[in-house]
C-alpha cells in the first residue's frame, strides 16, 4: 500500500475560553480525537455545521494552530509540535497550502496580482523573471482570470476573482496537499463551477490531493472521493462520498442531507436544542 499523503490520528484541540457569565475560564473541545487519511492524489471532504471544528482541523494541519494532542503525518512523516523555521517552514509550504473562505482578508491590498503570485514562486523556485512571468500568466489562465488582471490590485477585483487569485497563489507553490476551507462557498455558481472543474482537472494532470472543507453537500459530492462528517468536534461518519450521501448511517448526517435545498424540498422547523 502506498503511504497516504496525509494522515491525522486522534487529533484534538481544546481552547480555553472565557466563561459566558461570571469569571474564570472553561475548556472548549473544538476537535475531539479526529482520525482520517487522505490518500495520495485523493480528495477528502470535511462537512458539518458551523462550529463543528472543520476549520480548526484544517488550521492544525496547515500549521496555523497548535494541536493539543494527536499526530499529523504528511507523506508518512510525523509533524513535530515545535514551530518550524527557515528551510523547514518553506518545505512545509510546498507540502501543504490552504485557501480560506474570505478572499478579502487573505490578499495584501498593496500588492498587484502579479507580485502576489510571483512572491510565492520566488520563495519556492529558482526562476528567471521571464519564466516567472510566464508561470504567473499560466496560473491566472488556470483559474480563469484574464492576463490584464495581473497588473491590478485586489480592490479592483470582484469577490470571485479575488478567490481565484487566492487559489492561483496557493497552486503556485505546487503543494502536495491543498486545503480549501469553504473556498468556493462565496462564489457565484458560474464561477464556482469553473473552479470545481479546474480542481478536478488539476487532479488529473498533476499529483495533488485535496482536503475540501464545505457545508455544501452538492459541491462536496462533485469534488470528493471520500467524506468525513463532523458534529460538535467529533467525527460521526466516514466513508466514500457516494455511499455516505446515498445511504447515511448517522442520524446527524441524515439531518444534514435533509437540509439541502433541491427541487421539491420545503424547509422545515425541527425541534432542536439551540446553542
Amino acid at each position: 500500500m502506498t503511504t497516504p499523503i496525509l494522515e491525522v490520528r486522534d487529533l484534538r484541540k481544546v481552547f480555553d475560553v472565557r466563561r459566558e457569565q461570571g469569571r474564570g475560564k472553561e475548556e472548549l473541545v473544538a476537535v475531539d480525537d479526529a482520525s482520517f487519511t487522505l490518500p495520495l492524489n485523493g480528495s477528502l471532504a470535511v462537512v458539518g455545521e458551523s462550529g463543528s471544528g472543520k476549520t480548526t482541523v484544517a488550521r492544525m494541519i496547515a500549521g496555523l494552530e497548535q494541536r493539543t494532542s494527536g499526530s499529523i503525518l504528511v507523506n508518512g512523516v510525523e509533524r513535530g509540535l515545535a514551530r518550524p523555521r527557515g528551510a523547514e517552514r518553506l518545505r512545509r509550504g510546498k507540502e501543504v497550502q490552504m485557501v480560506f473562505q474570505d478572499p478579502y482578508s487573505s490578499l495584501d491590498p498593496r500588492q498587484t496580482i502579479r507580485s502576489c503570485i510571483a512572491e510565492v514562486l520566488s520563495l519556492h523556485f529558482e526562476l528567471s523573471s521571464k519564466d516567472r512571468d510566464e508561470r504567473v500568466a499560466g496560473l491566472l489562465g488556470d483559474v480563469g482570470l484574464a492576463q490584464r488582471h495581473a497588473s491590478v490590485h485586489p480592490r479592483s477585483l470582484s469577490g470571485g476573482q479575488r478567490q481565484r487569485v487566492a487559489i492561483a497563489r496557493a497552486l503556485a507553490a505546487e503543494p502536495r496537499v491543498l486545503i480549501l476551507d469553504e473556498a468556493v462557498s462565496a462564489l457565484d455558481v458560474s464561477v464556482q463551477a469553473q473552479i470545481l472543474n479546474l480542481l478536478g482537472d488539476l487532479r488529473q494532470t498533476r499529483e495533488i490531493s485535496y482536503l475540501f472543507i464545505s457545508h455544501d453537500l452538492a459541491v462536496v459530492q462533485q469534488v470528493s472521493d471520500e467524506v468525513v462528517v463532523m458534529h460538535r468536534g467529533r467525527i460521526v461518519e466516514v466513508g466514500s462520498t457516494d455511499d455516505v450521501l446515498r445511504a447515511p448511517a448517522d442520524e446527524y448526517t441524515r439531518r444534514l442531507i435533509a437540509a439541502v435545498p433541491r427541487p421539491g424540498w420545503r424547509p422545515q422547523r425541527h425541534a432542536r436544542t439551540v446553542d
Binding site: 458560474s190 464561477v191 464556482q192 463551477a193 470545481l196 472543474n197 452538492a218 462533485q222 433541491r262
Partner: peptide
C-alpha cells in the same frame, strides 16, 4: 445558472456559463 450548479444526487461535470458577468 441552473446548469452551473452541481446537482445533488448526481456527479456530473458542471457546465459553467462561459465568460464573465
Amino acid at each position: 445558472l441552473l446548469d452551473s450548479r452541481p446537482e445533488f444526487g448526481a456527479r456530473v461535470r458542471a457546465r459553467p456559463i462561459p465568460g464573465r458577468p
